[in-house]
Design a protein around this nucleic acid. Structure first.
Ligand SMILES: Cc1cn([C@H]2C[C@H](O)[C@@H](COP(=O)(O)OP(=O)(O)OP(=O)(O)O)O2)c(=O)[nH]c1=O
Ligand SMILES: [Mg+2]
Length: 810
DNA sequence: GGGCCGGACTATA
DNA sequence: TTCCATATAGTCCGGCCC
């Protein structure tokens, strides 16, 4: 029912929007689930409205997607997920009613409004933050050598669409879509006229091209941040300042800049005289050298003495020319200052010149005074002048990217805040750019659908829509009082800041648990902890139920991950194993090693991973046992117990044993530390044993080129007899998995796998026994684990005790 | 009450 | 027939320990 309002198209330059304003009360009465589309499709399909200028009816696209998706296990899982979201929405609606009581809206909160005012006021007075986003990146890289492909709808990725060209987008084909669905879209919507071409992904190529792009961009901002291959966040403040300085020296077109003279003279003096007639290229080279020159110094210092940067401050200062600071001076920073001192924002920062302790104490290490100086310089020029200049600079920059990469185009957003720039970069998407005037932030922002705000995804959007009747950012602003009350701190703050344009770093949301996190803001603030937080590997495969085979897969993943860690020279303190059942339900279990214990070795990783995997299996068994007991009995239908655990094959006998059937396994490591920063500590060497064979992997390495995320490679898969229902359980080996089918009236306990003869009562009694054995979990763990003699483990003691229990239990 | 953990969720490319 | 990925990161909350 009620389909989501078709997302607005790629927002043409003019911000004509379509906010269906549902004024006033509207839902005061319907307490629960007003009009939540039980369809689930709301959360599942569409909702994206990417830049793919489509010429085809959106409803047709959605219809095909829905039809092709059918009622697959995947879709079923999506619906379960959607149902949970609906529950949350219902809860929020209730809370909202409690808050509102009879009122239609909350009274304004002066404190809140003041706070928002300050956020708004902290907006940098010039738009210098730039976000560069490559156009259909992967595809564009492929088109470089296969330009003919662009004449047809095409995409990168086989099983999954990683990205697509515009011809394909017209048919609704977009990122993260299943390949077969994409095929159908093209076939049907072109009336059989065209077929979607799939290009295998080639990460090495994308990385290579990305490197070329970054090389160009760094000439404009040596401190740029890029969070993915196709995106970069830069702050052209310094560049812009030097650029303007040059021209103002050249001709006095700007009256406003008097005080700035000091700067001009000292820094660009020579340029002012000798490069007056510098061509754009020469000017660029000069500025580039100015920036990179200092960047090198600053960068080096920063990297080396991460912790002592504060001390370096003096040193840096005397240098005078280094401006590494550009990074440090960030929206976020300003914001923080504003928060505490609720003033300034503009002109100030003089004090900073002499290491101000207060600023320092806050995590922020280096306080780029230099950066502030550049910003001060910019203020000497009118907003219009700055806008014009930076537009031109960015235009040249994009052209340079295209030239240096042999044809790749990109789009850019320019704004006073990185988040805004990010949003702006999407608007003139194919090979275009857009600047958000510092004075017209809200005019740009408010008409946009909230989904456009980085950090607000499908779920948050749905919540905002159904609980607050919020469609656009302006609607969100209007609901600020309620938003503040119903969302958790971090989330509420993020949303509130966002609706007044203060979009930098993000966070996550979801009011009662979720969270939305955004990405690094612009060039600074976050910078300091740019160290990797986690590293992981996961693999999807044809659903497999044989535990041993699954263990082998897990081991292989551990090998890959270990290699990655060795390459990156990091060790992990916490390991988590992720499992996706054939039902698409995901489970994970984590374990932190003993204090100060970090691992990297493949074999050690395998031990921990297997342990965790076993524990997942055990817990799922318990889960099934409980649900089974609750339901009163074991039946042989395809019970969809969300745990996704199917009972073993035997379709005839009432077999309660469960078979953990997964379609994906993954290992994630976090709490990372650089190996060199760790004391040699090899605690409990005796347990680590390690037959050195691990070193075998160290060889080769083609430089961690990310694997192809696009589902099916050519991994055997595809073929395989697959007997009807219940994916075939091959003749399981000795593993406890598929207990030989038992004759009628006998059950197999999902916990201990022992065969129980008797009726349901008997079975339930037995299950109770198993469940009551508080040690079940550990037991199972031990069992599966025991196979790996030499269990290293970080807790030899605990291990021992478990072993004890194990023997007791059994 | 602070800090660490673990597990579920959300988000982005 | 086939038949929905991979890698990273941040938030929130309940538990547990001290
Ligand atoms: C969105 C998305 C992108 N990607 C990859 C493929 C994309 O080419 C690359 C960059 O993502 P995007 O910038 O989101 O998309 P794009 O560059 O292909 O197209 P656009 O012109 O709209 O910017 O990241 C994925 O692998 N999975 C995803 O879910
Ligand atoms: Mg892109």
């Amino acid at each position: 029912m009620k389909s989501l309002p078709s997302p607005t198209k790629a927002m043409p330059k003019s911000h004509s929007l379509q906010k269906l304003k549902l004024t006033a009360t509207k839902t005061t009465t319907n307490k629960n689930l007003p009009s939540l589309s039980q369809d689930a499709s709301a959360l599942i399909i569409s909702a994206s409205d990417k830049a793919g200028m489509d010429g085809i009816d959106r409803s047709k696209i959605d219809a095909i997607i829905l039809r092709e998706s059918g009622n697959s296990l995947y879709i079923q899982q999506q619906k379960r997920r959607d149902a949970k979201v609906n529950e949350r929405i219902a809860e929020l609606q209730t809370k909202k009613q409690e808050l509102l009581l009879t009122r239609s809206r909350l009274p304004s909160n002066p404190a809140l409004d003041a706070q928002m005012q300050s956020w708004q006021a902290s907006c940098p007075c010039r738009a210098t933050k730039v976000v560069v986003d490559m156009d259909m990146f992967y595809m564009a890289c492929e088109l470089l050598t296969k330009p003919h492909l662009d004449q047809h709808p095409a995409c990168v990725g086989k099983g999954m669409v990683l990205t697509s060209n515009y011809k394909a987008r017209q048919f609704g084909v977009r990122s993260a879509m299943a390949g077969f669905v994409a095929d159908k879209l093209v076939e049907e919507l072109s009336h059989g006229t065209q077929r979607l071409i799939h290009v295998p992904s080639n990460f090495a190529l994308y990385q290579e091209k990305a490197k070329e792009v970054v090389a160009v961009l760094k000439e404009y901002d040596p401190h740029l941040k890029s969070y993915s291959l196709d995106e970069a966040y830069l702050d052209l403040g310094p560049y812009l300042a030097l650029h303007l300085q040059h021209y103002s020296c050249k001709k006095e077109n700007e009256n406003e800049n008097e005080e700035i003279d000091g700067w001009k003279k000292s820094d660009a003096g020579d340029l002012g005289n000798g490069v007056l007639s510098a061509l754009p290229d020469e000017l660029h080279h000069w500025i580039r050298d100015q920036l990179t020159g200092s960047a090198v110094k600053a960068g080096g210092a920063a990297n080396d003495s991460d912790m002592d940067i504060k001390k370096d401050k003096d040193a840096q200062q005397k240098e005078g020319e280094e401006e590494a600071s550009s990074r440090a001076m960030d929206d976020e920073m300003q914001q923080e200052n504003d928060m505490e001192e609720l003033n300034e924002a503009d002109s100030s920062g003089d004090q900073d010149l002499d290491g101000d302790p207060k600023d320092m104490n806050v995590k922020d290490t280096k306080r780029p005074h230099q950066y502030q100086n550049y910003m001060k310089m910019l203020k000497k020029y009118s907003v219009e002048t700055c806008n014009r200049a930076i537009q031109s600079i960015v235009h040249h920059m994009r052209a340079l990217v295209q030239i240096r990469t042999g044809g790749l185009t990109c789009s850019a957003g320019i704004a006073p805040h990185s988040g805004l720039a990010k949003m702006a970069s999407d608007i003139n998407k194919p090979n275009g750019q857009l600047l958000v005037d510092p004075h017209k932030v809200l005019e740009f922002l408010h008409p946009l659908p909230v989904r456009k705000v980085p950090g607000i995804g499908r779920v948050t959007q749905k919540i905002l829509q159904h609980v607050f009747q919020v469609e656009t950012v302006e609607d969100l602003y209007e609901q600020r009082a309620l938003v503040q009350k119903l969302f958790k701190n971090a989330s509420a703050n993020y949303l509130l800041k966002a609706c007044v344009g203060h979009i930098g770093t993000s966070s996550s949301t979801s009011s009662d648990g979720g969270s939305f996190k955004s990405f690094g803001a612009n060039s600074e603030e976050i910078e300091e902890d740019d160290h990797q937080k986690g590293i992981s590997r996961e693999r999807t495969f044809r659903p497999e139920a044989n535990y041993q085979k699954l263990q082998e897969k897990l081991d292989s993943i551990a090998d890959m991950l270990s290699n990655d860690m060795v390459r990156k020279k990091v060790k992990a303190h916490t390991i988590t194993v992720k499992v996706k059942l054939n039902t698409f339900d995901v489970w994970s279990r984590a374990k932190s090693l003993d204090r100060n214990v970090y691992i990297q070795d493949a074999d050690e990783l395998k031990v921990v991973a297997n342990e965790l995997f076993a524990s997942i299996k055990a817990e799922l068994a318990v889960k099934q046992a409980k649900s089974m007991k609750k339901k009163g009995e074991v039946h042989d239908d395809i019970n969809y117990n969300t745990s996704g655990i199917g009972k073993s094959s035997s379709s005839s006998s009432k077999d309660a044993s469960f078979v953990l059937c997964c379609r994906l396994l993954g290992i994630r490591c976090y709490s990372l530390e650089h190996q060199d920063a760790l004391p040699q500590q090899k605690p409990m060497d005796k347990f680590l044993t390690r037959t050195d064979m691990a070193s075998a992997f160290s060889s080769v390495k083609q430089g961690h080129i990310q694997d192809d995320p696009e589902g099916n490679d050519e991994r055997e898969a595809t073929q395989m007899p697959r007997n009807d229902k219940h994916n075939g359980k091959s003749g399981d080996a000795p593993s406890p998995e598929n207990p030989m089918k038992v004759t009628q009236e006998s059950y197999t306990c999902p916990l201990c796998n022992s065969v129980i003869v008797g009726d349901n009562d008997v079975l339930n009694r037995h299950i109770d026994t198993c469940l009551n054995a508080s040690t079940v979990r550990q037991v199972v763990r031990e069992v599966t684990q025991s196979t790996q003699e030499e269990t290293m483990t970080t807790d030899p003691k605990k291990k021992a005790s478990q072993k004890q229990k194990l023997t007791d239990f059994w």
